[in-house]
């Protein structure tokens, strides 16, 4: 295999990177389709209605039809907007969402590139999304968009603190930022969720807020702000934001799985170096389904409740947790 591909013009390593990028894009779009269907179907079921039923068996092709419709729609640019930024905002939101896929270890041999500081890489790349939401809200020149964007930033900045603090507790134990290293530190069923369940809960709550999911979906609260920062967007602009949101959910759940649920580890499978990715995806989608379940079960919180919950409960708890972890490690 390697002799065929080692042509000198395209080195193997380069081919590997290109292949990893293609896989990353496939995962991003595949995840958006699966999540879009699951969300609509489950939302329907939770509300005692069937959800999409018309296109294909139990509406399974609904997302393909929706995709064609969104691609075909006219891109409407309102008059008073900042035209360049208005067009750029969905792209700035969506593009960084693809990059973390390259460093996420799906299985021992299914990883685009193992990065010493993979965790920081993901955090840095995902931070650009906040800027994209701000640009989207501001360039629309619409008060709902502006309010949505401002809420999003306040929420993201606040919830980043407990998220990073709990993350730091895990890093204290493993002593590495490499995602693969963190997964390998939990091999043999010694998942961190068993040692620090509080950190897992705090981290999961913080990721819910970071990805703007209900009950913390105030940036796009339908009943108050029509659609928040994406009110003015139509067609592909809107759907890029939509896909970006699902991808960030996927990334957040992948991080949770890597940090607390042992990554790819699970009962051994044949060709485990590749197929154990099934365990990884099973855990990620279990978490994603929990996110959907939470969204359609709990009502949206008020903004003061949201910030109080973060500053009065999550931040102190995660600080104490970090302290306890450090003390236990020193003992």
């Amino acid at each position: 295999m390697s002799t065929v591909m080692n042509t000198g013009f395209l080195p193997l390593e380069l081919l590997r990177i290109i292949f990893a990028l293609i896989c990353a894009i496939v995962i991003v779009f595949g995840n958006a389709v699966v999540m879009g269907y699951l969300e609509r179907k489950l939302a329907g079921r939770f509300q005692r209605r069937p959800g999409p039923m018309e296109v294909g068996w139990h509406g399974i092709l609904q997302l393909a039809v929706d995709g064609v419709k969104l691609v075909g729609k006219q891109l409407i640019i309102p008059k008073q907007t900042d035209r360049v930024l208005y067009r750029l905002a969905p792209i700035i939101s969506f593009a960084p969402a693809i990059m973390p896929m390259v460093v996420i270890p799906f299985a021992p041999k299914l990883q685009g590139r193992d990065f010493d500081i993979g965790l920081i890489f993901i955090l840095a790349v995902v931070a650009i999304n906040v800027l994209a939401i701000l640009i989207a809200g501001w360039s629309s020149n619409n008060k709902y968009s502006l309010l949505g964007a401002m809420r999003s930033v306040a929420q993201n900045v606040a919830y980043e603190i407990p998220m990073l603090l709990t993350l730091l507790s895990v890093i204290l134990v493993t002593g590495t930022f490499s995602l693969r290293g963190i997964v390998e530190a939990q091999s043999g069923g010694a998942w961190f969720i068993f040692f620090m369940p509080v950190a897992f809960l705090i981290f999961f709550a913080a990721t819910l807020a970071e990805t703007n999911r209900a009950p913390f979906d105030l940036p796009e609260a339908e009943s108050e702000l029509t659609a928040g920062f994406m009110t003015e967007f139509s067609g592909m602009g809107f759907s890029l934001f939509f896909m970006a949101e699902y991808t960030y959910m996927f990334i957040a759940c992948s991080l949770t799985v890597i940090l607390f649920l042992g990554g790819w580890s699970g009962p051994p499978l044949p060709y485990g170096e590749y197929t154990s990715a099934l365990w990884f995806f099973a855990k990620v989608y279990a978490l994603l389904l929990t996110m959907i379940w939470i969204r359609w079960t709990f009502p949206r919180v008020r903004f003061d409740q949201l910030l109080n919950f973060c500053w009065k409960y999550l931040v102190p708890f995660s600080l104490v947790h970090l302290l306890v972890t450090a003390v236990v490690l020193k003992l």
């Binding site: 010493d116 500081i117 920081i120 840095a124 790349v125 931070a127 800027l131 701000l134 930033v153």
Partner: peptide
């Protein structure tokens, strides 16, 4: 890469925001 990540995390993700 560490400097690069910090640059993005602090300057783009915090200062610019």
């Amino acid at each position: 890469p560490f400097m690069a990540m910090m640059q993005v995390l602090i300057y783009v993700g915090a200062v610019c925001v």
